[in-house]
Design a protein around this nucleic acid. Structure first.
Lengths: 266, 266
DNA sequence: CAGTGGTCTAGACCACGTG
DNA sequence: ACGTGGTCTAGACCACTGC
């Protein structure tokens, strides 16, 4: 770019053409954002579009700088933010990679339940059922669906060290998760979020949780092998893909006898 | 600095003196960290030492660059990290400020309990008691104290919209929080963490929480105006000042009838 | 107007991973 | 030896704040 070119606007005209000395920015007002934010947006689009798959490397900073006609430093700042948000992963000497739920390092990325004694437990999953149903009003609202649209509803029990510990009730948009069946899930070893990536092209990028303390009902108590009325954490999680589109509602009941929910505050 | 001076070491010799062309870094091996990390460390020391008080502005980036004999960009990167950790607060055109628990913006910074309907509630605090005692073993361990050292133990009930909602059991190192009495607390309007800053020079910078679901005991139920056995969130928080020194253990019981604990996952 | 942080660039060199 | 990201510098200009 030609020295003074702080237009804060990409591809407004041909790169060759020299632009006027003082682009009027108050005229078109608002809507201006820093170049690196625009680059960040373009990278997000490429990620969303699937131009680079989870686990793959994206082009080098110099390549991207050439593609977008900006300096390496500007691309770097865009990538820095995406890396801070855990959408990208930088590895010195190797490149920058699209985040994935497959790697051991980030499995259970969204699961904050931790053993009190710190011993990493062996985990197992038992599917209770998995059906296509019409979305109840509350689920539809959380998933940005119309009332009664098709959703997949699935329930399961997660065990740690062979002790049933989590009772999950999961809701997914039916239009995206076609062909998700109990049989398919049972035959599957990897975590759900990894499966979503691989089988349905849905990358979960962020989640919001709301937590309450509740008493176990009779059915819940039975499934978790505890007495009815036992206090449980009720964790309602909404997970989002690129562009903040909600893609999953998960209501979990956590047994916290030998586990706790950990959180860091800054 | 003289062009090639990537020594990654501050104040190793006088700034005037020109250094050899290739400083041997493999010799003294390890222990090298990037310049901006060293600057970050120095800034942290100054914050800890109280050179700049909470709410005050720190020197400008150019001033700090001059003081540390590095470029503005290096100082900037150090400050960027401290701002990302919420230790500093940047305000364009004004300066960079030391974080404080006094401002409305960041009050309840560590309190994740939120009304289900989003209406910001009016809050009130009732002190139950406040005593100096010998630290029990578990508290001593969490606060890095010797067994039996003096601690301040205080209990209170927080109400939102006049409904008792949080039962807090708070433990503080006695050597730091001298003269903290129930009377003093009762006469005090501001949040505890703000008071810690102003009265005891202790800035809480970070906290870790462990959450379980428990049933209310008789006494607890009475204080929270609920039936014994009601499920509550039990939130154990350890708060840290600069240098990751633990300065508070807070065990809270949260009533989650009309409130929930919110959390964001990335 | 001067001073602050915010953005952008260009270029140098370092550290890491791979062939 | 080469390509990647990581650090550091120097200098330009922009945007916001307050005198």
């Amino acid at each position: 770019m030609s020295g003074f070119a702080h237009h804060y606007s990409l591809m407004s005209d041909s790169p060759q053409q020299d632009r006027g000395p003082v682009p009027d920015r108050s005229a078109s007002s608002a809507a201006f954002s820093p170049l690196y934010q625009q680059i960040k947006g373009l990278l997000l689009q490429s990620l969303d579009r699937g131009e680079w798959k989870p686990g793959e490397a994206i082009p080098s900073e110099l390549d991207l700088a050439a593609r977008f006609q900006v300096s390496q430093g500007t691309v770097r700042k865009a990538i820095d933010e995406l890396a801070a948000d855990n959408l990208l992963l930088r590895r010195q000497g190797k490149g920058t990679f699209v985040a994935t739920h497959h790697e051991a390092r980030v499995r259970f990325r969204f699961l904050r339940l931790t053993p009190d004694d710190g011993q990493p437990p062996v985990s197992g999953s038992r599917i209770l059922d998995c059906r296509r149903v019409k979305a109840p009003a509350d689920i539809a609202a959380l998933l940005d669906l119309r009332n009664g649209e098709a959703v997949v509803n699935m329930r399961r029990v997660l065990s740690f060290d062979n002790a049933p510990t989590i009772l999950d009730d999961i809701w997914l948009p039916g239009s995206v998760f076609k062909g998700l069946t109990a049989e398919f899930l049972a035959s599957c070893r990897s975590p759900l979020y990894a499966l979503f990536e691989t089988e349905f092209g849905v990358s979960m990028v962020r989640a919001e949780e709301k937590i309450k303390a509740v008493s176990a009902s009779g059915e819940q108590a039975e499934l978790l092998h505890v007495a009815p009325g036992t206090s449980l954490l009720r964790v309602e999680r909404v997970s989002y893909t690129y562009g903040d589109r909600p893609m999953e509602v998960r209501r979990g009941l956590y047994l916290t006898e030998r586990f706790h929910y950990r959180n860091s505050l800054n």
